[in-house]
Design a protein around this nucleic acid. Structure first.
Length: 329
DNA sequence: CTCCAGGTATTTT
DNA sequence: AAAATACATGGA
């Protein structure tokens, strides 16, 4: 880790052998290549689905997103780079350091380093999933690089339908996040833990948080702002079990949230968010379980996918939103 | 009206 | 230790 002199922001150190080739097109435009099969269209479609996420905006050929680096804000466009991403910085600092930050962020978000070839071989050996490599070819596990955002999103989404969850998230982000304005449109970044610690529980309640969810969110924000919880700390724990234990000790984080957050943010490969309603529905829909109580068969099914459990869960979620004209398998 | 949403903590058997 | 229940609200 190093800290930018100019902005005071923390720039993550790059791995010694950076595997992703980057070509600068001009000062504000560059490419990031993905390892193995990558489909911008599939990722773009997943981000669009039928929901309305307020932390980015979808255009027909691109995704536009505001990023916060320390106290600086950037706005970027993300387009198809042909086997990777093409990135354009629309506003904000385009120094080498910020580009390095963007590169890391997008490599995380679109999971560009994972070569899914082996996963596809596993999928094709299992009857209910054998259609997936062709149907979803190049779809990557879209992550949530910011750990606080990840857990906050879990808390919001607990036990309510997704559309409602997205509307609660929007109220939170528009009230407590920061917006970058570009051509008359606002692009929001997710609020920081430091802001949420000071949030009024009654205001959260008005945004349709339940009383307990409001308390969970503020409690988690406190854990982040006093450094009890962050990516580095969790990654320093020796294994999956201890990480899960550490997370579930925090009020509002159960097994589902811990697995979801580790899968979406820490890139743990073997996460199964047990109890997940969508996952269970997808497994019933694929004929793996006979009903949602039939959880015994779940473990057996996942056994064939050692090391790719997270990816399989993600692809099953993908299957819940069929494209126009796509038949549900 | 009832049941279910990409659950969790708390209370009760 | 396992099972029941409250929680908030919108959509089917």
């Amino acid at each position: 880790m190093e800290v930018s002199q100019k902005t005071g922001c923390v720039i993550p150190a790059l791995p010694a052998s950076w595997p992703v080739y980057m070509k600068a097109v001009d000062r504000n435009t560059f490419e990031i290549r993905a390892n193995g099969h990558f489909s911008f269209q599939e990722c773009h479609w997943y981000l669009n689905r039928e929901f309305d996420d307020c932390t980015y905006r979808i255009y027909p050929d691109r995704v536009r997103k505001a990023l916060r680096i320390g106290n600086e804000f950037l706005l970027i466009d993300i387009l198809d780079g042909g086997g990777g991403l093409l990135v354009k910085i629309l506003s904000g600092d385009s120094s080498e350091r910020c580009i390095a930050y963007i590169r890391q962020y997008l490599t995380d978000w679109f999971d560009l380093e994972t070569d899914v070839e082996h996963f596809y071989r596993q999928l094709s050996t299992s009857k209910p999933t054998s259609y997936m490599p062709e149907r979803y070819k190049g779809l990557r596990l879209l992550s949530i690089p910011d750990f606080f955002e990840s857990i906050a999103w879990c808390i919001i989404g607990q036990q309510i339908n997704l559309r409602f969850a997205y509307s609660v998230k929007r109220r939170l982000v528009e009230r407590y996040g920061t917006a970058v304005t570009y051509k008359g449109e606002k692009y929001h970044t997710f609020p920081t833990p430091e802001t949420i610690v000071c949030a009024d529980p009654l205001e959260l309640r008005e945004m349709q948080f339940s009383n307990s969810k409001a308390a969970y969110l503020i409690g988690v924000a406190k854990a982040f702002s006093d450094k009890t919880l962050n990516k580095q700390k969790l990654l320093s724990l020796p294994d999956f079990e201890s990480r899960q234990k550490y997370l579930t000790a925090i009020k509002g984080i159960g097994v589902w949230t811990a697995n979801y957050a580790m899968m979406k943010t820490l890139k743990e490969r073997s996460c199964i968010p047990f109890g997940d309603a969508g996952l269970l529905n997808a497994l019933v829909g694929h004929g793996v379980l006979k009903d949602k109580q039939d959880t015994a068969r779940m473990e057996k099914f996942f056994r064939k996918f050692k090391g790719w459990e997270s990816y399989l869960v993600f692809y099953l979620w993908r299957s819940l939103s069929p494209m126009e004209g796509e038949q549900v398998s």
